[in-house]
Amino acid sequence: MPEFGDRWRAGWIVLLADHHAPAFFRVTALSVGHHRRSMGVDRAFVARPSLASRAGVVAGRSAVAVRSSTRSAYVVDNGIKWRALPADFPSWSTVYNHFSEWEQAGITHDLLDGLRDRVRLVEGRTAAPIAGSIDSASVRAAETVTGDTRGFDAGKRVDGRKRHLAVDTLGLVLCFLVTPASVQDRTAARNLLARLRYLCPTVRHLWAVGGYTGSLLDWARTLFGITITIVTKIAGQTGFVVLPRRWVVERTLSWIAQHRRCVRDYERLPEHHEAMVRWAMIHTTSKRLT
């Protein structure tokens, strides 16, 4: 795209055929100059050929669409406003429009799923997980978050929203849900498990914290065939102790919080917050392939 000048090379996307996995395309984002530290070098995104076509890589707006959309990771990682994007990026409205288009088309969903499957294969696992963990974390909300989508978590004393996550045994996100912080874990878990059953029907066992006790255990086993094991604290435990299985999903929550845009919730709609979390995990998961 010569009309954008040489400095745009920092965001060009190069498609490379992966000979070890012919069913995938390997999309490598080249980062140079002063963006090297924040975006990384040779960051790999793995997508199916059909996904690449939907993303605009194969035809039409290929360079602009993918370059603009991957700039969303810059916003999430650095926690800046859309209008504060660096001057040598595409205009903030172009980046946001492609960000919105990818979300509406479900491209980021498929991209994250493709990355997770590839990481599992590299780690010697099957692409489809059969076990995982669930947990939640409350996040303080900024004044931009509307009152009807936020709540107060009395246990954590947090006014904002809550992220409910289901991850595999490697800590890679299978699905997640964003609710007001006032929603109890066992209540939101029903919607989370329904989403998990639809997206990852192979999952048969989950580990969870004590907040998921009660009728939820029988409900999940009867309706979805998923058994849930509660990992409780050690008797007499004081201070921080790494508990079996629970640490996996807690580590994933910390991965998300390492992205500045996800430290607090600035999004007006829960769907927008889910999009930010999804890009945070795309950024995190892709690093495990490089």
Rank of each mutant, 00 (worst) to 15 (best):
W12K: 10
R26T: 12
R48N: 07
A188P: 00
R26P: 02
R186M: 07
W207S: 07
L170G: 00
G239W: 01
V277I: 14
L30W: 01
E143Q: 08
T252N: 04
A65C: 02
I256V: 12
V158I: 13
G214I: 06
G5I: 02
T146N: 11
L206D: 02
P22I: 07
H273I: 05
L206R: 08
D148P: 01
T179P: 07
I230M: 06
V57P: 07
A127N: 04
P129M: 09
H272I: 12
V145M: 06
H273P: 03
D159I: 00
C262P: 03
L216S: 06
T290K: 00
G147W: 03
R120E: 06
L193K: 07
L216G: 05
V173G: 07
Q184A: 00
W92Q: 02
M276P: 03
G40P: 03
D77T: 08
A84D: 14
P2Y: 08
H205L: 11
S100C: 14
R150P: 09
K81R: 15
S31Y: 04
G11Y: 13
R190I: 15
S69Y: 06
V32A: 04
V158D: 00
H164G: 03
I107V: 15
L121F: 01
P270Q: 03
M281G: 05
P90H: 15
P180Y: 05
I226L: 11
L217Y: 07
A141I: 05
R161M: 04
G171P: 05
V57S: 09
D88H: 12
T169Q: 08
G151L: 07
E250H: 06
L193S: 04
R221M: 10
F152I: 06
